[in-house]
């Protein structure tokens, strides 16, 4: 559960540990997101203080980069590649399929908190487009049937876990 004191301590530890790196802000933001799944609002003043930056500066950086999330994502992050090579072999239909099956749009999370859907622009898998990324795994030569199976497998795992 979200625990303000825990988050504050975790963020401070991370920021203190990397404050001396040249250009430390991105490495710190990555470490915070890797630890907590997102960049909580409460992290911003702490990071700003440790790096001697204004809150607005940290805020500006967090919002500039697509990768940094402001909300806790679902258990799995599913990214559909929207770029040209994947478009050439059906990515547009795949996007529609993912939205329809999950009943959510990009940047949203399913009600069971299992899946967050995101767009991505090229996964470097273009020799075998279309591509979909699930957490750190990339899947190639995707089609509607494979996507359905993939999403179903992710959702059935959740049921088992809970």
């Amino acid at each position: 559960m979200e625990n303000a004191a825990y988050i504050a301590e975790r963020v401070r530890n991370i920021a203190d540990g990397q404050r001396d790196l040249p250009g430390a802000l991105l490495p710190i933001l990555h470490a915070v997101q890797d630890a907590l799944g997102f960049i909580p609002e409460a992290a911003i003043p702490i990071i700003a203080e440790v790096l001697n930056l204004s809150r607005a500066e940290v805020h500006g950086v967090v919002s500039f980069y697509h990768h940094f999330r402001r909300q806790l994502p679902g258990q799995h992050i599913v990214q559909i590649c929207r770029a040209e090579s994947c478009q050439a072999v059906g990515a547009r239909a795949l996007e529609a399929e993912a939205r329809a099956q999950l009943g959510i749009d990009y940047h949203q999370t399913t009600a069971d908190r299992c899946i967050t859907l995101e767009p991505v622009y090229c996964l470097g898998n273009c020799a075998c487009s279309p591509a979909v990324r699930v957490n750190d795994e990339i899947h190639g030569l995707m089609d509607a049937a494979k996507l359905s199976a993939l999403l179903a497998a992710l959702r059935s795992q959740v049921v088992e876990v809970r």
């Binding site: 991105l26 490495p27 990555h30 500039f64 980069y65 697509h66 990768h67 622009y121």
Partner: peptide, 8 residues
Amino acid sequence: LRIGAGAY
């Protein structure tokens, strides 16, 4: 090694 954050 430094990692980007999804910005073309």
